[in-house]
Simulated scan of single mutants.
Amino acid sequence: MLTFAAAVFLLIITPGPGVLSAAGMGAAYGFRPGLRYVIGLFFGNNLVALTVISGLAAIVMGPPAVRTVLMVASIGYLLYLAGRIAFAGSRVAFIEAKKAPGIPSGIMLQIINPKAYVVNTALFTGFAFYPQSLAVETLVKLLIFNAIWVPIHLVWLYAGAVLHRLNLSEAAHHRINILMALAMLGVVALALLSSFGGRG
């Protein structure tokens, strides 16, 4: 059980689309608007977990074409969110970025986020610790997973919100938003590299 908890912590604490976008929403819009987005991430991640646990993910994700479509959709959506963060509050935004993405945006990111499926599959198909009952083990895993997932994402959101609350100039805030968006683009680049690397 402790090994499972450690694995959850290490897999979630590392920067990925979820935590980086949570920090970016906090930096661009503040804690409360960003919290709605994190609630969406939470619901979306649990939907992915249930899809993995039920075996539906293995059936749906089996064909390589589906994985490719999911990767393209995920990258496109991450680019969209990076744009929302980069141009938050900007009068020259090419997209409407004054209103923070909410719960549906968080759910959408997790549903099309390949990393969410990989992490959930690794956690829920491995790290067995209660052979007497798979149902009990799965329930305990869900509880542990969420008990670690929630505070980590709230810490990232809060870190971004601290930057948002600092008495910085509009130009400085804009630079921070750009840096957060660039970090998300870094995740996109890594996703592309891993995707092409997996084909070699």
Score class of each variant (00 low, 15 high):
residue 87 F to L: 12
residue 88 A to Y: 01
residue 89 G to Q: 07
residue 90 S to V: 04
residue 91 R to E: 15
residue 91 R to Y: 05
residue 91 R to L: 13
residue 92 V to I: 14
residue 92 V to L: 15
residue 93 A to E: 11
residue 95 I to H: 09
residue 95 I to W: 12
residue 96 E to C: 00
residue 96 E to G: 09
residue 97 A to W: 03
residue 98 K to M: 04
residue 99 K to I: 12
residue 100 A to H: 04
residue 100 A to C: 14
residue 100 A to M: 07
residue 100 A to P: 01
residue 102 G to D: 14
residue 105 S to K: 00
residue 107 I to M: 11
residue 109 L to V: 10
residue 109 L to S: 06
residue 114 P to C: 10
residue 115 K to I: 14
residue 116 A to K: 02
residue 117 Y to T: 00
residue 117 Y to Q: 01
residue 119 V to C: 02
residue 120 N to T: 13
residue 120 N to V: 07
residue 121 T to C: 02
residue 121 T to Y: 06
residue 122 A to T: 14
residue 122 A to P: 00
residue 123 L to I: 06
residue 128 A to G: 14
residue 128 A to I: 10
residue 130 Y to N: 11
residue 132 Q to G: 07
residue 134 L to K: 13
residue 134 L to G: 07
residue 135 A to H: 09
residue 135 A to N: 06
residue 136 V to N: 03
residue 137 E to T: 07
residue 138 T to W: 00
residue 138 T to P: 04
residue 141 K to L: 01
residue 143 L to R: 01
residue 143 L to Q: 03
residue 144 I to W: 09
residue 145 F to W: 10
residue 146 N to E: 14
residue 147 A to R: 01
residue 148 I to F: 03
residue 149 W to E: 01
residue 152 I to P: 06
residue 152 I to E: 11
residue 152 I to R: 08
residue 153 H to R: 04
residue 154 L to V: 10
residue 155 V to Q: 08
residue 156 W to T: 10
residue 156 W to P: 09
residue 156 W to S: 10
residue 158 Y to R: 14
residue 159 A to P: 11
residue 160 G to H: 08
residue 162 V to K: 13
residue 164 H to E: 00
residue 165 R to G: 12
residue 165 R to N: 14
residue 166 L to I: 04
residue 166 L to R: 15
residue 166 L to H: 08
residue 167 N to G: 05
residue 169 S to C: 08
residue 169 S to T: 15
residue 171 A to G: 12
residue 172 A to M: 13
